[in-house]
């Protein structure tokens, strides 16, 4: 065609075609979405240490392995109470004149999702130790160790934040590892990552692609006989702190092996701790325990499976509990 033998006409057509499609598929939707979505009532923009921590998160490319989006599919419900919605991201604006907006949604989940990490793992001690050497708390982890955010001191000062690194990761040194401001800021940012509750009366969007009905029926029928897999529930919810061998980490997380609370015939205190958190042992150097049962939406069946795993492993030998018993106590301790 003669039209296409004219380079001006040809290349202008090409430009116009692509430009119009771009406006339709990218620019208009982007403009419209930033306009119609407003922050949720309970949300707060980042400030102070958390804001500085976010800059560190960006600088170190954490987004390469950690997503910050709970998709509305069933497999993602372990990462948050509800799927992420557009409003969750609407507080995020341009970082500064040099750097673009950072929603940090991510496209790879080599490590866990962090949308709700401030709720899921609220222990600052754990976060610091994990940053210093991830393998000291999660043996199988492949996360980089961010040791340049920490320094070694023979005798830490009174204001220093000391990290209780297990001896095997101290390379024979006798002093203490102290968190630098970067580490504290990064952890402050992680602590700020919490899903905001939807305003009263708004039902959250549903998780779709639920597991097939046949499976659910199987587990319901199982309450009569077979239990859920307590060991794997323990791995998913408790092991990061209390460790696979149930011995915890000295100076940071108390052991469950031989613990009075675990071995007690009456599971009330144990369920209370799981549902409401616990900070009675801080004088011994142990960090506060988060209300993991509430934040992770654990059911009575799941909690009883975890309890029974803890009560009968690592040499523990206590009375098993039933889901019905747990259900009653869960209602009783509910705040």
């Amino acid at each position: 065609m003669e039209y296409f033998n004219n380079h001006k006409k040809l290349f202008f057509t090409v430009f116009a075609f692509f430009f119009i499609l771009t406006v339709l598929i990218a620019i208009i939707p982007a403009l419209r979405n930033q306009e119609i979505n407003t922050p949720l009532p309970g949300s707060q923009p980042l400030s102070g240490d958390a804001l500085k921590g976010k800059a560190i998160y960006i600088a170190n490319g954490c987004v390469a392995c950690h997503t910050q989006q709970v998709r509305n599919v069933d497999m993602d419900k372990m990462w948050g109470q509800r799927p992420s919605i557009a409003a969750d991201y609407s507080t995020i604006k341009r970082t500064d004149i040099w750097r673009n907006t950072a929603t940090l949604m991510g496209t790879e989940r080599t490590g866990p999702d962090l949308t709700n990490i401030g709720t899921r793992q609220p222990s600052i001690d754990w976060q610091l130790l994990h940053l210093y050497q991830p393998r000291s708390v999660v043996k199988e982890s492949i996360m980089p160790a961010y040791q340049w955010m920490f320094e070694y001191k023979e005798t830490p000062g009174p204001k220093d934040k000391v990290v209780n690194v297990p001896a095997e990761f101290m390379r024979g040194k006798k002093g203490k590892i102290v968190a630098k401001p970067e580490a504290l800021q990064l952890v402050a940012y992680l602590m700020s990552l919490k899903q905001v509750k939807l305003p009263d009366g708004t039902p959250p969007p549903e998780f779709i692609y639920k597991k097939k009905l046949a499976n659910t029926a199987g587990t319901q029928g199982a309450s009569a006989g077979v239990e859920l897999d307590g060991a794997s529930l323990y791995t998913a919810n408790c092991q990061a702190c209390h460790q696979e061998n149930g011995e915890g980490l000295p100076g940071a997380f108390p052991p469950l092996k031989g613990s009075k609370v675990v071995l007690d015939d009456n599971p009330e205190l144990m369920i209370n701790i799981i549902m409401n958190g616990y900070n009675a042992r801080q004088s011994e150097g142990f960090g506060p325990m988060p209300p993991i049962g509430t934040t992770n939406n654990l059911s009575a069946e799941e909690i009883s499976a975890i309890l029974n795993h803890e009560k009968t492993s690592w040499g523990n030998n206590a009375r098993k509990v039933t889901p019905d018993e747990v259900k009653k106590l869960m209602d009783a301790v509910k705040k």
Partner: peptide, 26 residues
């Protein structure tokens, strides 16, 4: 065409006007 397009997409990616919130993701 490729040279024209890469300019357009670079502008769409780096101009700040439509990058807030979900606009960044889109």
């Amino acid at each position: 065409a490729a040279l024209i397009f890469v300019l357009i997409i670079t502008l769409v990616a780096y101009l700040p006007f439509w990058q807030d919130g979900l606009g960044e993701t889109i």
